[in-house]
Design a protein around this nucleic acid. Structure first.
Length: 269
DNA sequence: AACGAAACCTGCGCGC
DNA sequence: TGCGCGCAGGTTTCGT
């Protein structure tokens, strides 16, 4: 669920709360989510201070003294800041700071990932080295060159973070609706003018969603208690059988490469 | 190389 | 009430 706007919202909220905090200890309850030795992970983090929190696509980057902690929330990852409270069943990483406060990583599905890499290397290694730019920074021709030979449908192209970053299932549906492009169109059949419409629509959709604090579709609490409001602006996603806001045709739900996909069969072609 | 499918997980809502 | 099943979805891994 967290796509670029939700991750950006988490970034801003987290930064306001834990900037300049120094890590005194780390507890790890699901070691599979880090991609290194558990003891090394804890030892390296200990003593480092959070100097900045950045974001690239859907990744959060904690800038520490020596290392970058690169976090992907995947489907359901979220953070909470607590004092001494008891550990929740779904908290998999707990960082304790000098102030006594703790940062809890909570993830029911356990899909999230943490990677710790030296500051001078993290851009050149997985998971960030192949990440594409996000819509506002992506050059039209760079984007067009990556899709123009693809036999793959445009929707999965847009979900591919090495082609364009930041979009997930919700915002791809919204982007294609605004661009008036059907999700089943092949990448190679997209004209450059249409590619421009897609980039413009993606930028606009993401910008507005960031302004509204992202989308909260699930009923349970979001990261740090922040609730987004963009769900109120969704045009097609989750709108099966409702009238298209432009032409009143019923929105249909279909599967595209296994993903639930909402489309106005009249506006998008 | 390029694509498809399965895997990673858990909770929820459904039909029976 | 309880059970099994499909579904949800971002990304990696494995297979073709």
């Amino acid at each position: 669920m967290p796509e670029l706007p939700e991750v950006e919202t988490v970034r801003r909220t987290l930064k306001a709360h834990i900037l300049n905090e120094t890590i005194t200890s780390v507890e790890l309850f699901y070691p599979k989510m880090i991609h290194m030795n558990e003891d090394q992970f804890k030892e390296k983090l200990k003593g480092q201070t959070v100097h900045d929190i950045k974001r690239m696509g859907k990744y959060l980057i904690f800038v520490l003294d020596e290392d970058a902690l690169i976090i992907h929330l995947r489907m359901e990852g979220k953070f909470f800041i607590k004092e001494n409270e008891e550990k929740d069943k779904h908290e998999h990483v707990i960082m304790t700071f000098k102030s006594g406060r703790t940062l809890r990583y909570h993830d029911v599905r356990k899909f999230g990932t943490f990677d710790l890499l030296p500051l001078d290397q993290y851009m050149d290694k997985a998971p960030l080295n192949k990440l594409a730019r996000e819509p506002k920074d992506l050059d039209l021709h760079t984007f067009y060159d990556k899709i123009k030979h693809k036999n793959l449908e445009i929707k999965p192209c847009l979900l591919d973070q090495t082609i364009i970053s930041g979009l997930g299932n919700i915002y791809v549906d919204e982007t294609l609706f605004h661009a008036r492009i059907h999700p089943l169109r092949k990448g190679k059949d997209i004209q450059i003018e249409e590619a421009k419409r897609i980039l413009d629509a993606a930028e606009k959709v993401l910008d507005e969603a960031v302004l509204l604090g992202g989308t909260t579709i699930r009923s349970y609490t979001s990261s740090l208690g922040v609730h987004g409001r963009f769900q109120l602006k969704l045009q097609v996603h989750m709108k099966k059988d409702e009238p298209c806001p432009i032409c009143q045709t019923k929105i249909i739900k279909m599967k595209v490469k296994g993903r639930g996909t909402y489309v106005c069969p009249n506006c998008q072609d």
